[in-house]
């Protein structure tokens, strides 16, 4: 059974995994709304962004099929995210000292 799953993973044409991921995304949404009510101070934004990042990761990997795409797709997405993060770091390198 497990072997069969692994074999067909490359082109798994099944509904199940997507419904599971959707349930996960809905749960994470509920979590982020619930957590927003609690005051963690500076951690509140961090928590919200962390949950949003996990959700985006799931969408990118499963819904957008990055898990089965060629490696070059993953490298490109990684590079794009890397430059976004670098830009934010440089931006706040300026603003943190205002």
């Amino acid at each position: 059974m497990i072997e069969k799953n692994q074999m067909s993973e490359e082109h798994s044409h099944s509904y199940g995994i997507y419904i599971l991921v959707w349930l996960g995304l809905m749960t994470l949404t509920a979590v982020t709304v619930a957590v927003a009510g609690i005051n963690f101070g500076a951690l509140t934004v961090a928590t919200a962004l962390l949950v949003a990042s996990i959700k985006s990761f799931l969408v990118l990997k499963i819904f957008m099929h990055l898990n089965v795409e060629q490696k070059v797709f993953k490298i490109f997405v990684g590079a794009a995210l890397f430059f976004i993060i670098v830009s934010f770091v440089l931006l706040f390198a300026d603003y943190s000292f205002l």
Binding site: G37, F63, M64
Partner: peptide, 23 residues
């Protein structure tokens, strides 16, 4: 078309907490 639609979803995943969940 699906890829485009998922991106629209991802943008909203970030917009939602940043605008609606600052209390």
């Amino acid at each position: 078309a699906g890829l485009y639609w998922h991106l629209v979803d991802i943008i909203w995943i970030f917009l939602f907490p940043l605008f609606y969940l600052i209390t």
